[in-house]
Design a protein around this nucleic acid. Structure first.
Lengths: 215, 215
DNA sequence: GTGTGTGAACGACTTCACAGCC
DNA sequence: GGCTGTGAAGTCGTTCACACAC
């Protein structure tokens, strides 16, 4: 039973495959008992096709047993390794508003290795105030702090005008991945991973669907 | 200058096209002055290709002028009509936690026609409490309330165990679109539009990217 | 028999390139 | 000359179907 686990960048894996892998993992982890799971079963759980499941997994190795399916426990372990879930990711949030709080409270966020170890703001009224178990710090201190104990992921949760400024500070602080909640396109060097989340866009897609149906 | 504006379902428009249309709209609206915009310029703004911009728009009509580009004002008007942005969408949030609050506070959410007109919970301690300008109501009252003044979009912001129950109530209340923040797959009749947002999944995609780069 | 792993076929989305119009 | 609109070509992701392993 050879597990190649070629997590390397030798083959390019599509965005959608990664998305589904995370979903597979969540569903596998929600199974009550460790047992064998077929691609048919997994597909039904996450609303995709069995072939899709097998193809997605085959990018990273052969985790199943022909005639039997996949061992849930083994597949969980492999997916965690592939996705880097389980590693402790140190996160800093810039912008001490409700978005950051919602994130910290999001079910399964803290419990999955995503640990908020720093919160920053530029508002003097907020700096020094408590935030969950932390204290809100001055944004200007971010690079210095990161020099001592680095951050893996930076969360931009400030108004759009300041989004790029914050991103620049994060780059300066050697942060390698940015999750951007501000509704602006962020420009960053190519070695930095930037993802944008915009709630309004999600709702506008719903709005489009509703508009189409009405006619 | 004929604007076909075939917003109908005669041609199937891809998910990604809709996503980009919303982004185009946001950027156009952020332009300081009404003027002509070329597909080249729009593409640069939103990090895509000029051909992509033109193709996306061409699904819905011919909004530009050859040799000149697109009138920003006209394009904004058309995109708003296509996407249904500007219409007032009545939203109910079920689950009076931080996610709902973050949503209400999200920049540009309320100001774009998305109006939260009802908040529900099942926790007796929360029911009756004020929430923004509303009062938290009993989830059991949702279908009755919707009978009087219907909701367009329902937001599920409850723990995953209750997600499907809430969805069922929403279907009963004739809600046509559901935005699901609970980390469970929601089952609903096909005529209902369901979108799922899962922050943890977004972060795990970042985690994957970080893991890949490290090697 | 059962269910994986995977090349091959298919379909969907993107990019090209150029005709058409200003 | 400049830029849109769009069929055609190309690329990428998904589905099929079957050999292979248990």
């Amino acid at each position: 039973m050879i597990h190649k686990l070629e997590t390397g960048a030798n083959r390019k894996v599509s965005e959608s495959t990664v998305r589904r892998l995370t979903v597979y993992l969540h569903y596998l982890e929600s199974l009550p008992e460790a047992r064998a799971v077929s691609s048919d079963e997994l597909a039904a759980l996450v609303a995709t096709t069995p072939a899709q499941v097998r193809k997605d997994l085959s990018f990273f190795g052969s985790f199943g047993t022909r005639g039997l399916g996949y061992s849930a426990a083994e597949l969980i372990a492999n997916l965690r390794k592939i996705l880097g879930v389980g590693e402790l990711w140190r996160i800093c949030i810039v912008g001490a508003g409700k978005i950051g709080l919602a994130l910290a409270q999001y079910p399964g966020f803290a419990g999955r290795g995503f640990t908020v170890t720093g919160v920053y703001d530029c508002d003097p009224a907020k700096i020094g105030q408590p935030w969950e178990s932390l204290t809100i710090r001055n944004i200007d201190d971010l690079p210095k702090d990161a020099g001592k104990t680095p951050y893996d992921i930076g969360v931009i949760a400030v108004p759009s005008e300041s989004g790029q400024d914050v991103a620049n500070i994060m780059v300066e602080a050697n942060i390698r991945a940015i999750m951007n909640f501000a509704p602006v396109q962020i420009v960053a060097p190519p070695h930095i991973v930037v993802r944008m989340v915009n709630m309004v866009l999600e709702f506008e897609a719903l709005s489009f669907a509703l508009t189409q149906r009405a006619e």
